[in-house]
Computed example of a mutant assay.
Amino acid sequence: MFTPQHDGLTPQSLLRHKDGPCTHDLYVAEARVCERGMTVQGKTHYTPLPVEELEYRKGKRSTRFYHRISIDCPVKKHTLHIRCDETDEDRQSDPKTKKQRFNRTEHLRQVPPNTPALRRLKGLDSESIHSRFDQSYPHKRVPAYSARGALLIYLGYAWLNNSITRALSAIFS
C-alpha cells in the first residue's frame, strides 16, 4: 500500500554526520533526508540526498528498513544508512517538552517524493481499483505466494484495466 506524504511538516533535525574534517547537518524535509545549508542571502536551504537503495534487515521480531544515501563533498564521498522506521531514541520523550523526540515514520518516507520508485508506484494508488481488485478474487485473497508475485498480479490487473479503458475511450470518442 502506498500512502503519499501530507504537506506542511516543518523540517526536523536528524543527525550531524562527522567524519574527519567533514561535518554535515542532515535534516528530514519534504519526506526525505536532506543536507542543510545556507544560501548567499543567509536563508536555510535543504538539498535532498539521493536514496541509492532501500535496504532491509531482518530482525528477531520485525524487518527494519534503511535508506542508503551518499553525501558528495569535496573531501570524500560519505555513505550512510538511515533507518526509516521508528528507533528507541525516537520513542524517548524530550525532558524539556515531555513530547516524543521525533516521529520518524511521519517525517521520513521509505519511498521519497520525486524519485523513480515513487513515479512507478504512484499510478497504482487508486481506491476504486483496489476495491474492484479485491472483489475479483474469491475470499478477497490474491493467489500469490510472495510480494513479487502479488505485485506481478496487481500490475497485470492494472494493465488490463487500463487497456479496457483505452479501448472504450477510443470507441466512444
Rank of each mutant, 00 (worst) to 15 (best):
F2S: 10
T3W: 08
P4T: 09
D7F: 08
L9W: 07
T10Q: 14
S13W: 15
R16N: 12
K18W: 06
D19G: 05
G20V: 11
P21I: 14
C22N: 13
H24C: 03
H24K: 14
H24F: 13
R32Q: 15
V33W: 00
T39H: 04
K43D: 00
T44F: 02
Y46F: 15
Y46T: 02
P48L: 03
P50I: 00
E53H: 12
E53Q: 15
E53A: 15
L54W: 09
E55V: 14
Y56N: 11
R57T: 14
K58V: 04
G59P: 11
R64V: 11
I69M: 11
S70F: 00
S70R: 04
S70V: 01
V75H: 12
V75Q: 13
K76R: 10
K77T: 15
H78M: 01
I82D: 03
E86F: 02
E89W: 15
R91T: 05
S93E: 05
D94A: 00
D94I: 02
P95Y: 07
K96T: 06
T97F: 08
T97M: 08
K98R: 14
R101W: 07
N103V: 10
R104H: 02
T105I: 06
T105Q: 06
L108H: 06
L108K: 03
N114C: 12
T115S: 15
P116A: 03
L118R: 15
L118Q: 15
R119E: 09
K122V: 11
K122R: 14
S126Q: 10
S126I: 08
S128Q: 12
H130Y: 13
S131W: 13
R132G: 06
F133G: 01
F133T: 02
D134Q: 15
D134W: 10
S136N: 13
Y137A: 08
Y137T: 05
R141M: 07
R141G: 02
R141V: 09
R141Q: 05
V142D: 00
A144E: 13
A147W: 00
R148F: 05
R148T: 10
G149Y: 02
A150K: 14
L152T: 14
L152W: 08
Y157A: 14
A158Y: 09
A158D: 10
S163F: 03
S163D: 08
S163H: 04
I164Y: 03
R166W: 06
R166L: 06
L168E: 07
L168Y: 04
S169E: 14
S169R: 15
I171F: 13
I171W: 12
S173V: 06
